[in-house]
Amino acid sequence: MQVDFYQLGGAPSDGIVASIAAKLIDEGQRLLIVSADEGALARLDRQLWDQSAASFLPHGLAGGADDASQPILLSLGTDAPNRARNMLIADGEWRDAALAYDRAFYLFDAETLEGARLAWKLLSGRDGVERHYWAQEEGKWVKKA
């Protein structure tokens, strides 16, 4: 399983979430986006709806009747009724449940940096876990480790 750590500089997370989600959808994959902050999930919901007609990202908020059919599901929890094999942690709080997925995207900022460092260390040397660290340089994501 692969964990991609994304350190958010001053940029809002909405853009990277939409970018990752779009790439996965293009590849025919499903995504579970997790946050403990309902307000953040509502903002992400609006962001994904407000994409242009050419780049609309089909999604839903967990708890609806159509959860199983959603390519992208935004949720407070770590279960994926949409059968996603990819989890994106949008609130900077690492969850070990991510290790049950094929790939996890872990977004963190200055406020959650210490938690990200701890998660990086805890995942070091774990069998079957491949870690990558990404940071923004001049508006582009650059793989640092």
Rank of each mutant, 00 (worst) to 15 (best):
Q2E: 14
Q2N: 13
Y6M: 01
G9P: 00
S13I: 00
V17N: 06
V17I: 10
A21I: 08
A21Y: 05
I25T: 03
E27Q: 13
G28L: 07
R30T: 04
I33H: 07
I33K: 10
V34L: 10
A36L: 09
E38P: 07
G39M: 06
A40R: 13
A42K: 14
R43W: 06
L44R: 12
S52Y: 06
A53T: 04
F56E: 01
L57P: 01
P58R: 03
D66Q: 15
S69I: 01
P71N: 13
L74I: 04
A80F: 11
N82Q: 10
N82I: 07
R83K: 15
L88V: 03
D91W: 06
D91E: 12
G92Y: 04
R95C: 08
R95P: 03
D96C: 00
D96W: 01
A97F: 11
A98H: 07
A98P: 02
A98M: 11
Y101V: 00
R103A: 07
L107C: 03
A110E: 15
E111P: 01
T112M: 03
G115Y: 07
W120C: 11
G125M: 14
G128I: 03
G128F: 08
E130C: 10
E130Q: 15
R131I: 08
Y133A: 14
Y133D: 13
A135Y: 03
G139R: 02
K143V: 00
